[in-house]
Computed example of a mutant assay.
Amino acid sequence: MASTDTKATRDDLAGLEAGLDALDAVEVRRSPVREILVEKALPPVLAVALVLAVWQLLVSLGVLGLLVARVKFVRAAIGPILQGLQSLPSVAWVPPAVLWFGLNDAMMFTVILLGAVPSIANGLVSGIDQVPPLFLRAGRTLGATGLKGVWHIVVPASLPGYLAGLKQGWAFSWRSLMAAEIIASSPDLGLGLGQLLENGRNNIDLPGVFLAIILILVVGIAIDLLIFSPVERYVLRSRGLLLKS
């Protein structure tokens, strides 16, 4: 009887020790610093960087347009190239972009930029060409020469043309994105409207095809109504070309 009690006690002690060992073996998982940075801090930084990159791109295009419009040898050298790039279908950039970067977001961004940049630059050049010479003479009379004349006379007067170039650049970039998604379809890129359109064609799903077309049209109209139309109205009102309602 005593031996049985002793054996039970030993079994209980062994079970208790095993439980304590299991508790000691449990490792409390802490979120590593890298994971916290990637999930919490990285998205806002990327958003700010994207805004700054877009702003820097617009400024760079503005400088390029000013150089092409105001410097003769630059216009002779770069002007025909910009015109040729604008007439080149943006879908032609998809194959080289895939070979350069593979099927990833960098390929998409490259195709979008190559489709939009020539239109924006040419829009600014056209806007500068349409600045009345009287404005420039009046500016020189008031002392606005050199960079002051460019900043206070040329840039404000060419703003409608630059805005038209931005609208055209948006249209070209939107078409470029749809064409790239249709041609370079990949699960790594996610499901976009272009891929939705292509999937509807492959599955002979006519309602799905028209749904994708309607969604593409709705996005284009929404961007125009929410972004470009208010800016265009503001520019026209500032020049007295549109009465305030």
Rank of each mutant, 00 (worst) to 15 (best):
198 E>H: 08
53 A>E: 06
229 S>R: 13
232 E>M: 07
217 L>V: 13
85 L>W: 10
234 Y>V: 14
3 S>P: 02
173 S>Y: 01
187 P>W: 01
164 A>H: 07
25 A>F: 00
96 P>G: 09
182 I>D: 07
200 G>C: 06
158 S>C: 05
125 V>G: 11
214 I>S: 14
61 L>A: 12
98 V>L: 12
164 A>I: 02
239 R>M: 14
196 L>P: 01
90 S>I: 02
42 L>C: 04
138 A>H: 12
116 A>H: 01
154 V>F: 06
207 P>F: 09
103 L>D: 01
119 S>P: 04
87 S>F: 10
59 V>K: 07
8 A>K: 13
184 A>Q: 00
72 K>A: 08
162 Y>F: 14
19 G>C: 04
151 W>R: 14
82 L>T: 04
210 F>K: 12
142 L>M: 15
125 V>N: 10
231 V>F: 07
96 P>Y: 06
74 V>I: 15
177 L>M: 14
103 L>F: 11
158 S>F: 00
64 L>Y: 01
148 K>M: 06
138 A>T: 11
92 A>P: 00
135 F>V: 03
116 A>M: 08
160 P>M: 10
136 L>N: 11
227 I>D: 04
101 F>Y: 11
113 L>S: 07
198 E>A: 14
212 A>N: 01
190 G>F: 01
228 F>Q: 02
27 E>V: 13
157 A>G: 03
129 D>H: 12
129 D>A: 15
80 P>L: 09
236 L>S: 05
11 D>L: 15
187 P>N: 04
89 P>W: 05
122 N>V: 10
199 N>G: 13
66 L>W: 01
55 W>E: 02
146 G>E: 05
2 A>G: 07
35 E>G: 04
58 L>C: 03
115 G>Y: 00
108 M>F: 08
12 D>H: 09
30 R>P: 02
28 V>L: 15
79 G>I: 10
171 A>I: 11
35 E>H: 07
33 V>K: 12
121 A>K: 02
95 P>R: 05
145 T>Y: 09
112 I>V: 15
140 R>V: 06
186 S>E: 06
34 R>N: 04
95 P>S: 04
114 L>D: 03
87 S>R: 08
87 S>V: 11
154 V>M: 11
84 G>M: 11
165 G>L: 14
110 T>G: 04
194 G>D: 03
231 V>S: 07
240 G>D: 09
89 P>A: 09
155 V>T: 10
238 S>C: 09
195 Q>L: 10
119 S>C: 07
34 R>V: 10
212 A>W: 00
44 P>D: 08
233 R>N: 00
87 S>L: 08
225 L>M: 15
234 Y>P: 01
152 H>C: 04
38 V>P: 06
239 R>H: 13
165 G>N: 15
162 Y>Q: 08
94 V>N: 01
119 S>V: 08
17 E>S: 14
188 D>N: 14
116 A>S: 09
89 P>I: 01
131 V>K: 13
140 R>T: 12
154 V>S: 06
